[in-house]
Nucleic acid binder design. Structure first.
Lengths: 127, 127
DNA sequence: CATCAACATAGACGTATGTCGAATCAAGAG
DNA sequence: CTCTTGATTCGACATACGTCTATGTTGATG
């Protein structure tokens, strides 16, 4: 399965080797799930709970959006493998799946020994 | 936990404290820029270059897309603060801006001492 | 069984996004 | 100056996305 991650140690190595087309597609889904302010806040609220679980009834009132919309965003986060939900009685509790965030963090972390790209000689006024 | 180092400068601490609405909007733009397979591969190709710079003429033929489309994606990556471009003579060279990827990596990295959410372990009342 | 509350799903609608071809701008060669 | 090559910008279009209202499903309660 994860054939090429062994080549660099762990993961698909976004920053150290050109990304495979298939890997790029998989990763894009996850990043796309993070590419929305509402979902980012939802993930943040879920992840920062010490117990690790948050009831939807606690999430919904924090936004100025309808309940189905929140439910929709939670579904996308779940489909991206970032969170998981479980029904307990009347309420549904969501929790973070740290495996995915760990993987992303690893992808975006430069190897320690990697030389930073030498900055251009004299940055001028243009950005 | 003194999670947030600065209001807008360094580390909004996605996983340890609820994300601010404005921070979420800013972050979402960056993640949205990463939420496309083509852009992920472009970023990967640029970042993995040892010299740190890649000519557009090297990037375009790697895709089955028109040159304007590649240029469009590069523009989005640049607007997200992930890469920067510089024209040298006929060709334009792009390079990674590691500050942004470092920031994202930090956001997605859990603090070492942070207790991982135990999967349905605590039967007691939730806080 | 009837009813209510918490979430999820379905369909609809406006906007954003990815893509293209054509036009335009920038730099070098004849 | 003109012509060619590299790259961005522009205008258009199909699709995807975020949001809503309406409806369905699940579980608790009387």
């Amino acid at each position: 399965m994860r054939a090429q991650e062994a080549a660099d140690g762990c993961c698909p190595a976004l920053l150290t080797s050109p990304l495979d087309e298939e890997q790029a597609g998989e990763l894009a889904k996850v990043f796309k799930a993070l590419g929305d302010p509402v979902r980012l806040r939802l993930l943040s609220m879920i992840a920062s709970r010490d117990g690790g679980e948050v009831c939807v009834c606690d999430l919904t009132p924090a936004f100025d959006l309808s309940q189905p919309t929140i439910s929709h965003h939670l579904k996308l986060l779940r489909q991206a493998g970032l969170i998981d939900g479980e029904r307990r009685g009347t309420w549904v509790h969501y929790r973070l799946l740290p495996a995915m965030t760990d993987r992303l963090a690893g992808l975006l972390t430069r190897p320690a020994g990697e030389p930073l790209p030498a900055p251009a000689a004299a940055p001028g006024g243009r950005a």
